[in-house]
């Protein structure tokens, strides 16, 4: 399996008048063809910013740099704006959280699909219309031909997300970045949408970067998982590695915080102490030491890099990793 996307040393910061906020601080990872790579972490850990940095769609005060950012052999760092525009949509697709906000409220769903298919897909108006209907059929929108004329607010949230999926997949990207694709949906709809997404991913042989704070979604759908904390990757491994033998205390804490569904099972929630520190005051040494139940004095000074622990491909950034 070839590597589709390779990122090394990705750093993104936001510059305001007084502050410089580092949102992503030295993130490196690879996504292989057909692979689903999960990215988990609390809100504010830099997951979405990582995604936007890859597509160079940061807000205007955001600046990102990287040592390597290769997409199928093309460097995204040196790509011209035209080339980037070519890559966006056709090569790398983006699905965002809150599907209703991702659709233009004053354009019909049909207009948005046709626009994408004609301007980006190079189809004629008639071909595009047929394709649009087929796409909506594919994502299980009933009565697709008629509903092309409807506006986003006339659909349910779950349907909107399926429309967004149709819109994104209409250009058959090689890599799909799905940022919290199911976060705003009901649990049952979540399962449907996720199943659809996974199905289409397999069908089109896409790679996927699946961003979520829902460990269940991650565990069920990913080939590999990255855990992110305060702009850094703290652990990478297969779902088995991460969920069965987590090495980083942060990962362990995340997993302990999953509620059990069995009411008879007494559960002591061992939620993380405190909140994620402000990116304005990143702790010295290991970033997690302020909340870590196992912190030692040296954690305040030493900033551990990712290193192998146990199985091949299982990496954790903790001085204690491998020690248990």
């Amino acid at each position: 399996m070839g590597t589709v996307l390779q990122v090394a040393g990705l750093r993104t910061h936001f510059q305001s008048a007084e502050h410089r906020i580092t949102a992503v601080d030295g993130v490196s990872f690879e996504i292989a063809q057909n692979e689903v790579l999960g990215l988990v972490g609390e809100s504010g850990s830099g997951k979405s910013i990582t995604a936007l940095s890859i597509l160079k769609l940061l807000p205007s005060n955001g600046v990102s740099s990287a040592d390597v950012m290769q997409f199928q052999g093309d460097s995204l760092l040196t790509a011209s704006p035209q080339r980037l525009r070519e890559i966006r949509g056709k090569e790398i697709g983006l699905i965002f959280q809150n599907p209703l906000a991702a659709l233009n409220p004053v354009l019909t769903v049909g207009e948005q699909l046709l626009e994408t298919l004609t301007l980006r897909g190079g189809l004629s108006k008639r071909e595009a219309k047929e394709k649009a209907i087929a796409l909506l059929d594919q994502v299980n929108i009933p009565d697709a031909a008629r509903r092309l004329g409807d506006y986003p607010h006339q659909f349910s949230l779950g349907m909107c997300q399926r429309i967004v999926i149709a819109l994104t997949l209409s250009l058959t990207p090689k890599l799909l970045i799905a940022d919290e694709p199911t976060a705003s949906l009901d649990v049952t709809v979540q399962a449907q949408v996720m199943a659809l997404l996974k199905d289409l991913q397999r069908q089109h042989q896409m790679s996927m970067l699946l961003i979520s704070h829902d460990l269940g979604v991650i565990a069920q759908n990913c080939d590999r998982v990255m855990v992110m904390y305060l702009g850094r990757i703290v652990e990478i491994g297969t779902p088995e590695d991460i969920f069965l033998t987590p090495k980083h205390p942060y990962t362990q804490a995340l997993i302990r915080a999953i509620p059990a569904t069995d009411p008879r099972q007494k559960q002591v929630f061992d939620a993380l102490k405190g909140e994620i520190p402000s990116p304005l005051a990143i702790p010295s040494g290991c970033r997690f030491h302020t909340r870590c139940p196992m912190a030692e004095p040296r954690c305040r000074q030493e900033d551990p890099a990712l290193r192998a622990c146990g199985k091949a491909g299982h990496l954790a950034a903790c001085v204690l990793a491998g020690g248990f």
């Binding site: 936007l52 597509l55 769609l57 525009r85 070519e86 890559i87 966006r88 949509g89 056709k90 697709g93 983006l94 965002f96 991702a102 659709l103 233009n104 626009e115 994408t116 301007l119 980006r120 967004v164 819109l167 994104t168 250009l171």
Partner: peptide, 9 residues
């Protein structure tokens, strides 16, 4: 943002 992510000019 999403429209730009689809590569529209």
């Amino acid at each position: 943002l999403v429209a730009r992510a689809r590569g529209l000019s």
